[in-house]
Each structure stands twice: as structure tokens, then as C-alpha cells.
Design a protein around this nucleic acid. Structure first.
Lengths: 328, 328
DNA sequence: TTGAAAGCGATACCAG
DNA sequence: CTGGTATCGCTTTCAA
């Protein structure tokens, strides 16, 4: 069917070795040999079998990406950045969506392990111990979570929360609710941690709701609970949850930001398009993806990668506003 | 490093062949051999190298997915469905985002060809001839486009357009604009074709604008042109473009649907969340992904796949309304 | 039922 | 600079 190195060798009248060399290190063969090989390769439409190559070189030039849910617009942004950076180094990407099911993460990694040089685990939901079992076995970089001993790229949620709380405080809010995301999500715990510290610093009351699925429906599901609480502002685990809140509030005629202010997290495309436009903490999604690839390549090259923390930036839009008199 | 079949063989005290058999066809070995092998494999954490296996079996159990832009929420939906269905048959997915750049599609396919059993090309932007060159060489199923001789899965855009136009006509509209997407997009041409036929049938005037990038910015870029036209309703190439229109209309104080009605295409998540919520033609995204995998598997099993056309469904929301008197 | 050996496609090493 | 040969990890004859 498809041409192999043998076919090229035969057509060019040289050995396999020479074909290999002519194509990989053109300066190590005589110009005329190289030309003959190149022509033969072109004529036959020869492309090396990267899997076969990987077998002997121990390098597949593939990287595996595992993430919980491609339907959350946050992840496509990260994946795109990963793709772009990977392509730059001639790596291809194996993608796996686990559908928020922690149970399939580990088997998946096992099954794919030999086909990739390493993994980028985006927001993995498995237990630390399970993942740690891969340490020293498979090169792994973790995104949006910190698990020693893997190098990781995380967003500076604490700072984002500080900005958000500072903003709400300045607007006069003193009681803020947090709608928590999946219990298994490290980001969720990290954000909550940052939030607690921020509300502490500003002497504000924190009301915790959730946990909910990190989706629009998840947000809608707790909207009434939040509305019934004394909170005058709510910070959601992520933008999807925030949009769920927004939606349900609108349906019930609860004014945003008049009656309650809403803050999201991630700054997905949707956030700027709804009305009121969502105030949210932007995460450097592209940077996370790009940096993740860089760390993985470091790891593969036996350079010692250091953990990275990417900046966050509060984007103030229309869903947050001053605490009005009648509410206070 | 990682355990190979040899290690298992040694530990179990049998030959490689037996390990292979014990794991692949357990009924062809004696029960006690099988048990020894299974235990050894478990103890060593042995997982077969699928790339090596592919080398000999000629089957990689991978499928390649190529798409123009993961940032368009339409594609993640399709990819998720592909993943789910692929996993069901123990296939893994290679993903490649071409960033709407037709130039890298073909090289990409070539480079990945030996690592996958076949490709699912989602909305490929390359020329027909270039792609046709793969016919008979690499199993390919095309999604959202029709290119003989490849099996394909496409949405019934014509019917969707008929529904949309019927809806607008019933509301009193007689002049409708179409904002065209990428010239290289088959879907765009298909939708336009369907639209022309529908406006013809209803004796409505069609005003064509574009072509624009299939993004929010693309929509925003032609919004003023559309507003300046005599159209009282506009159908956008897709939801992102429609949202761009909506955004710009809002910014300019052009009432939707009061002054102009807006219809999108795809029914991405965003469509239901903006306000006014976007009337749009829903496409069976999951079905497209799932069916694509089915056709590819048919192709691989030498069954003869037939082209599929998935249904479309107009989702009426708040961005379309009756033609008001003062406009008419 | 089992083992030895060939071979998939490519690269690496060693002679020449 | 070139060719022969071993090898990567696995599956598949073919004999025993």
C-alpha cells in the first residue's frame, strides 16, 4: 500500500541506511545520492512511519492530553495553545476527554503511555496517590493542579480572588457567596482557599454553596439557594456556573447586579457576550497550554522543569455593581 | 523502563508467544498458563505497546481527527461525540486543529497517516482535488462536507434554511440578508444554496453579505453593512457570526428583533444564553460525530458506507420577531 | 498447547 | 560516504 523505506531504497538503488541518512541528515551523504533518494521518496509519496521510528528511537513525537470535558470552553482554549506549541516542535497530539469520570483517567494513561512521549494532564480528577504512581514511569506535566512530584502549571487563583473581593468590597458588598465546583477539582479547592483568605483580609462574610457540576445547569441548580441567602454578591467556581446563575436569576426576575452581583472565573468567550456581560477573573489559558508543553519538553530533555504560576486578571463587566441602599 | 512482553514471559516462565496468546485469546492456552501470565502481567503493570502491535497487525486502533478550529464551540461537541463512540470500540483519538489554515491539512494527514487507521476530516478547507488524492490510499470519512468518493456525514442545511425562511416569512419578513462564512467552507456554500432555494420558494428577496471569518469578530465586522441594507432579518453563517451581529447591533442601539431579526446556525451552547436568546438552526452535532465514527469503522471493515445526512431543527428563541409596522 | 523464529518499518552501529 | 545487520515490542505462522 503506502511506500516504505525499502521501496525508496530499491527505487533509488541504495540501501535503507542511506535512505534514512539522506532524509534525516542530508549532509552526511553525497549530494547525488541525496538527490536520488529525495526524488524516489517524492515519486513514491514516501512518509516515514512515525510509530515504527518511535519503536527504535524511543521517541514517538506525540504528546498525550487528558482533560475532563471538552464541552467546557475553557479546555478548547488550552488545547489549542497546546497544539500550536506542540506543532512548533513537530509533536502531534493525542486527545482524551474523560467526561469528568475519574475512573477512566488512569487506565487511559496506561493504554496511551507507550504511544506518547509524555502527558499533559489538564485538571485531572483522580486521587493524588493514583497519579503519583506514574511518577518516574511516565513523563507527566499537570495543568491546573499541583501534585508533587510532577511539574505543574497553575493559575494564580488566590490573586484573582483577591482582585474579585477587592472589587466587590469597594462596591460596598460585605457578604459574598461562593458556588463550589466539583469536589474532586483541585482548582475548586484552590479557589476556595484563595477566597477564604481574601474575605478574611477584607473582613467579609463568606457563604458557601455547592458543590455543583461545573456547567450551566450546575449553576442554575443552586441559583435559588444563593438568592435565598443573605449574600449580595456571588462568585462562581467558573463562568459556566456563573452563566447558569445569571440565567436563573433573569428567569426569576432577580436583578443583576441590582439585587445581586455575579462574578465568574476563566473568562471564556461567552462571558463577554451575555447581558449583563459577566465580570470574571481571566485566566491565561493560552499561556497555560503553551507553558505546559514547554515544561513537558524540558522534562523529556532531562532539564529540570520548575512549577509555573500564571497570572489572573479581573475583568470588570456589567454583572457587578454597587450595593444599593434598599438592599443594605 | 516500562514492562514489555519479554519481561512478562520471563516472569511467567513461558514464551512470548504464550503471553501474547494468553492475553489475546485466553481460551487457546491452558488455564494454569493463563493464570501465571495474567498474574505476571498484573505484577509488572504490563500494557502492550499499541504502536508496536500496529506495526505487525496493520491496525493502530487510532483514528485521526482534523478540524479547522477548536475555538468554535461547534467542533468540541462533535469531537466529544467522536471520542465517546471511538472509545466504545477501543479506539483512541489523534486530534489536529489546523487553525483554519488549508495549507497544513494535507501535510498533517500525510504525517499522521501511518499512526492511525483512518481519518475523520471535519469541515476540511482544502481543495477537492488535493483531498481526492488520498482516495484509495487512506481511509477517510468527511464531516460537514461532501467530496466524492469519500463517505460523508452532512447536515441537512437546505431543510434548516427552509424552516428558518418559513419562520421569517410567517413573521412577515420579505427581505432577508445572509452573512456568508469562509469561501473555502463547503457548509457555507451548502447553506447558501439551501437559502437561495428557500427564498426562491417563498418569493423573498435575498441580500448577500460577507464572506467573513466564522467568528464573533467576523459577525461584528459586517453588522453595520447589514443594518444599512434593506433587510429586516438576517441569517448568519453560524452562531458565532450571529452573536457578533447581535453584539454590534446592541452597541449601536439597533433593536433585535424590533428593528431586525437574527437567525444563527449550529445551536451552540452560547446561543441559548445571550439575550435576546438566539433563534438558530440546530445541527445534530453528536449524531454527526457518532455517525462519522461508524462510517469510518465500516470503511475499515470493508463494509461499504453510505453517505448520511443528519436532520436540522429550527430553534425559535427571542432574536426573531414579527415585522413591525413602522419598518414595513 | 507451546515455543522458535520471522517480520512489521525504521534507526543505529559498525565495518569497509 | 555507504551497506549490512541487529534491534525496538509485538503478533503470527509453523513445528514440535
Amino acid at each position: 500500500m503506502a511506500a516504505t523505506i525499502k521501496d525508496v531504497a530499491r527505487l533509488a538503488g541504495v540501501s535503507q541506511s542511506s535512505v534514512c541518512r539522506a532524509l534525516a541528515r542530508p549532509d552526511q551523504v553525497r549530494p547525488d545520492t541525496r538527490e536520488r533518494v529525495e526524488r524516489a521518496a517524492r515519486d513514491l509519496g514516501y512518509y516515514p512511519n512515525r510509530a515504527a521510528r518511535g519503536l527504535i528511537t524511543g521517541r514517538t513525537a506525540n504528546i498525550g492530553v487528558v482533560l475532563p470535558d471538552l464541552a467546557n470552553p475553557f479546555f478548547p482554549s488550552v488545547v489549542k495553545a497546546i497544539q500550536t506549541q506542540a506543532r512548533r516542535f513537530d509533536y502531534a497530539v493525542f486527545l482524551s476527554d474523560t467526561d469528568e469520570d475519574p475512573a477512566i483517567e488512569v487506565p487511559l494513561i496506561r493504554a496511551l503511555a507507550k504511544q506518547v512521549d509524555g502527558f499533559l494532564l489538564c485538571s485531572p480528577r483522580s486521587g493524588e496517590e493514583e497519579l503519583r504512581a506514574f511518577a518516574g514511569q511516565i513523563p507527566i506535566v499537570v495543568l491546573n493542579r499541583r501534585i508533587t512530584p510532577f511539574p505543574s502549571v497553575t493559575a494564580d487563583s488566590a490573586d484573582g480572588m483577591r482582585q474579585a473581593i477587592g472589587h466587590l468590597h469597594a462596591l460596598g458588598h460585605r457578604r459574598v457567596a461562593y458556588v463550589a465546583g466539583p469536589r474532586a477539582s483541585w482548582s475548586n479547592r484552590d479557589r476556595l482557599r484563595g477566597l477564604r483568605s481574601a474575605t478574611g483580609a477584607y473582613d467579609m462574610e463568606l457563604i458557601e454553596a455547592g458543590n455543583v457540576a461545573p456547567t450551566v445547569d450546575g449553576g442554575a441548580a443552586v441559583a435559588d439557594t444563593v438568592a435565598a441567602s443573605p449574600a449580595t454578591a456571588v462568585i462562581a467556581y467558573n463562568d459556566l456556573v456563573a452563566l447558569g446563575l445569571l440565567n436563573r436569576f433573569r428567569a426569576r426576575g432577580i436583578a443583576v447586579p441590582g439585587r445581586i452581583s455575579v462574578v465568574g472565573f476563566d473568562d471564556i468567550l461567552l462571558a463577554g457576550l451575555v447581558s449583563p456581560a459577566l465580570t470574571t477573573v481571566a485566566i491565561a489559558k493560552e499561556q497555560i497550554g503553551r507553558t505546559g508543553v514547554e515544561l513537558l519538553l524540558d522534562l523529556l530533555a532531562d532539564r529540570d522543569p520548575v512549577n509555573r504560576r500564571t497570572p489572573t486578571q479581573l475583568i470588570v463587566r456589567d454583572s457587578t455593581g454597587p450595593l444599593t441602599d434598599q438592599i443594605r
